[in-house]
Amino acid sequence: MPIKYVGRTTSFKGKTLWEIVGNLKNFGVGRIVVRSTFERYPEPSYLKICKVQALANEDPRKVRILAEKVFRGRKYPKIVEVCSTSYKADYRLLPKDEEQAYCKTDSQVVLEKVRILPRTIPFPPLLREMILADRRAKGGDVTKEPEMEMIFGETRDSLSRKAREDEEPNVMFEPGIGTPRSPELYANIQRS
């Protein structure tokens, strides 16, 4: 019988983890599962199942899985537990014959923060003028350019970090709106 979907569409594509794992021999230990949402990245992201633990029948869609996680071609140093997101119907079992091709990657590197961001940037123009005026009023040094210390949100998976003292940043924080990612949007706009 063909399935007819009712209601809003979703960006998820696939089955829940339990639907996949419950049908496999030995609960699919050693098999590889892919989250469809992460397939948008060019690098491979997948979970290699190490252990499966069924849960009490509180939430029948959930299962606890311990897996080796690779995200965007970078392998996590520790084994990861997947439980709270296991109910999402977004997982796909990788066929055994595709495993080797899919998981092949040139850079199976450890998650390392490679983008080094600047410690300070110039103040926004009006705030800069205010600070200079303040200094002038207090009789301070006006020739020195005021620098704003940057605060970056640090996450586990991000590849960037703030530069340490006496370290040269390799990513610059351009003034204004920066370099557009989609320059075609600005094609007809005169930008100074």
Binding site: P124, L127, I151, G153, F173, P180, S182
Partner: peptide
């Protein structure tokens, strides 16, 4: 899609800069 990624980038920039200004 191009608009989405550009808006996300601008939003991130804005949040980062505002966080720094607030910190100041």
């Amino acid at each position: 899609e191009s608009e989405d990624i550009e808006l996300k980038r601008l939003h991130d920039r804005y949040r980062t800069e505002m966080r720094s200004v607030r910190n100041y």
